[in-house]
Amino acid sequence: MKPKIIVGMVVIVAGIVLSAVNFVESNVEYGDFATAQRSGKKMQVKGEWVRNQESFFDAKSVTFVFYLKDDNGHTEKVVLDGAKPNNFDLATSVVAKGKFEGDHFHATEVLTKCPSKYEGDAESVKRTL
């Protein structure tokens, strides 16, 4: 084989290996609060917003504080960087991405899931009759 091709192959293989490592590393796993607390790693925790516990926007630290109950029924205080996300009130489930810091889960991002948000359902039909 020509050296040119060998060098090319090496570059391509190295590139693919590096990006595979990168892919695995930057994949933020789903987990519950217990695993996130144990590992101390960045994780995505899916759960339900506990509406009857306090939730407020802290203007001093520019964070939104709320309580999230994960799928195992474990509730933790979540501090999100930024304001209350759009659609938060409608969300049937919430995914918080972040890690534990002391007594709370520090989320850098929150995804809200609203399954039938934009699709009409029977309830909304009745309202527009």
């Binding site: 990006s19 892919f23 933020v28």
Partner: peptide
């Protein structure tokens, strides 16, 4: 496609961080 790949490989779907795209 990360959610598809991870759900096949690990059984749990998860997305990559934005950093992945920048680094690669």
């Amino acid at each position: 496609s990360s959610p598809i790949i991870t759900s096949i490989a690990k059984g749990k779907a998860s997305a990559v961080d934005i950093q992945y795209y920048v680094k690669t």
